[in-house]
């Protein structure tokens, strides 16, 4: 009967706060992975979407959701994966972008994410703000990032690709 007392908004708050396993300074809600919370009779149905098709964090996130809901007495939980609408970096707001930057990851630059990002885009270094940076590789340590280096402070950094 516990789930009758806890509102959907409260559930959203609790599981939305789960940190992304790859970038723990931002939550799955800020990243746009958490899509929907509903009740089907006594079953709590959570819909999540992967950033990239093969995002290896999805299973971890699913288990984390079940754990946190279990802690507040909701045990009848189903986590559903959806591909539509396709996840986009457009869902990341300015506040979250600042968090990424503070963490040392350059935030996605533009909002029209249907374009493949170009090499010659000016990218600010998240460490020293210099604009003399250079792309090392379109592909980085995770599917969502590219590798850059700063020619001023000489530090390498990652860029969260527009997608």
């Amino acid at each position: 009967m516990v789930n009758k007392i806890i509102s959907i908004n409260e559930i959203k708050k609790i599981i939305g706060a789960i940190p992304d396993p790859e970038i723990p300074v931002i939550s799955i809600n800020e990243l746009g992975i958490l899509r929907e919370v509903e009740f089907d009779n006594d079953e709590c149905l959570i819909t999540i979407t992967p950033t990239y098709t093969a995002c290896p964090a999805m299973q971890f996130i699913e288990e984390e959701i079940k754990d946190r809901l279990g802690e507040i007495g909701i045990n009848n939980v189903k986590v559903k994966l959806t591909y539509s609408p396709a996840w986009t970096t457009d869902w990341i707001n300015e506040n979250t972008k600042q968090k990424l930057k503070n963490y040392g990851i350059a935030a996605p630059l533009h909002s029209s994410c249907n374009k493949v990002f170009q090499k010659n885009v000016m990218m600010n270094c998240p460490h020293c703000n210099s604009t003399t940076t250079e792309l090392i590789s379109r592909f980085g340590s995770t599917a969502c990032k590219a590798l850059y280096k700063c020619n001023t402070c000489k530090e390498p950094f990652e860029y969260f690709k527009c997608h």
Partner: peptide, 12 residues
Amino acid sequence: LAQTNIALDMIG
């Protein structure tokens, strides 16, 4: 990194 990233997309 690039080739294995593409591989991961494919397997997904």
